[in-house]
Design a protein around this nucleic acid. Structure first.
Lengths: 159, 159
DNA sequence: ACTCTGACTTAGCCGGACTATAGCCAGCCC
DNA sequence: GGGCTGGCTATAGTCCGGCTAAGTCAGAGT
């Protein structure tokens, strides 16, 4: 990556308010990431989350509450016949927007940590064509690391 | 996401050997992710890593060693004039392949955790056009969550 | 009213990530 | 060869995530 203008002298600035760092405060734990994986697979209910991720209900409860508080999940009441009202955990737009991050990790694990490309394949539903997570321009072209540049966001108000 | 064939009954299988989980054993810590961020910004030297990430040298040393052992970084000797031989940490192909994962987190943080879109913008070097991390088919079209399907990888040997 | 079940909550513990501080070691300079 | 500097290593302690185990609580069924 190239650093533009005032950013070029890397000793002259610190990565304050870094979005990577902020994002990690939310989804920086194993359980948060794996709960998201399960949500993408279609899981919505408390017990299923705990069970399928392989964490205790205590851990699932506190992580799900955190993620719901932040807005990654929406907690919605539902009612099976003959059962009392319970809550299911549905991904919000904010939660769905994490799909590239989770799939990027999966893709990297498939490629570099598995001997056989991993146990699962993600494809486009209509065509069955494999999908990849990529760094793209608006026209959909993949952009390599050495063709990226970082610039300061235009100043709004302070900073 | 839709689950194909034998995967459809989510109670009938467990996400064993999950690549997300494996990837998290490697880059599941805050320090690992932030070291990668710095590496993408061009940092190569020990002290700079510790300093710019804002972690102690002890933490930087152990994390960098882990990542180098796994193959995310290559440790290469260098020599400044009048100095003794030292080592710099260079991203390998394996490490560079983590760019989409890190940028995906940054993008999500910019969008949902910052009030102003975050402090930095990543653009294509030649054109200055903004880039995005996306789930794409081979022709570069973005694929939404509900148009994805998960299938089992073809069996090679066991499992 | 009583029980049962599912969804948590609480308490206590362990282990790993991280911190601060200190010490070690290689090698270049003098 | 003695001192300095940079790159670690060692030690001790904190914090936090996750664990186990037990308790709570709402409400449907009986």
């Amino acid at each position: 990556m190239k650093l533009e203008g005032p950013l070029a002298d890397r000793d002259a600035w610190r990565a304050t308010r870094c979005s990577v760092d902020l994002a990690l405060t939310v989804v920086g734990t194993r359980s948060a990431m794996l709960l998201l994986r399960e949500a993408f697979y279609g899981t919505t209910r408390f017990h299923d989350f705990a069970d399928r991720v392989g964490i205790t209900e205590a851990a699932a409860a506190s992580r799900l509450r955190e993620l719901a508080d932040i807005g990654v999940f929406e907690k919605r009441p539902y009612r099976d016949e003959g059962q009392r009202t319970r809550h299911e955990y549905l991904l919000t737009d904010m939660g769905r927007a994490l799909l590239p991050a989770v799939l990027a990790l999966m893709q990297w694990g498939d490629e570099y940590l598995q001997t056989d490309g991993g146990p699962l394949r993600v494809v486009e539903d209509d065509t069955g064509a494999p999908v990849r997570v990529q760094v793209c321009t608006a026209d959909g072209a993949d952009v390599a690391l050495d063709r990226l540049r970082v610039r300061k966001a235009p100043n709004r108000k302070g900073r």
